[in-house]
Amino acid sequence: MLSVLVENNSGVLSRIAGLFSRRGYNIDSLSVGVTENPDISRMTITVTGDDYILEQIKKQLNKLINVIKVVELKPEKSVYRELILVKVKAHAEDRTVIKETVNIFRANIVDISPKTLTVEMTGDAGKISAFVDVIKPFGIIELVRTGFTGMQRGGIKITD
């Protein structure tokens, strides 16, 4: 997983996406948003590849003029989170069980309709897949995920 600090202007996303497709690297997920400094955005990019590919991706990203800093978020030294929204079938007899499951996972019900519940859940990859596995039997109508976002643990800053 890579954390990438970029200038906040239009075109940056296209440059980064273009770089990945051009060189045949796969993006598993990408999340982006503005940082504490409104001129700078930060992306979290999840990629699959061996050490060689990861090294190349880092170097190629660094070559882009709009990219300010690239840091690899190593699993043991970082926190990652992803937010998902799940719209699940919720018949009257299932509602209590779903609510309990939601509580156990410290998720939230954010919308309700006569036949469905929409649940918001935040967590790392393990928690999310566990939650999805448990909720699946009720019938998932749709599911949307933000992609991972992450930062290094401890007192360090990406620009350090």
């Binding site: 060689y52 090294e55 190349q56 170097k59 190629q60 660094n62 070559k63």
Partner: peptide
């Protein structure tokens, strides 16, 4: 001068 060429 281009670090991306080294090891590519």
């Amino acid at each position: 001068i281009d670090p991306a060429e080294v090891g590519k």
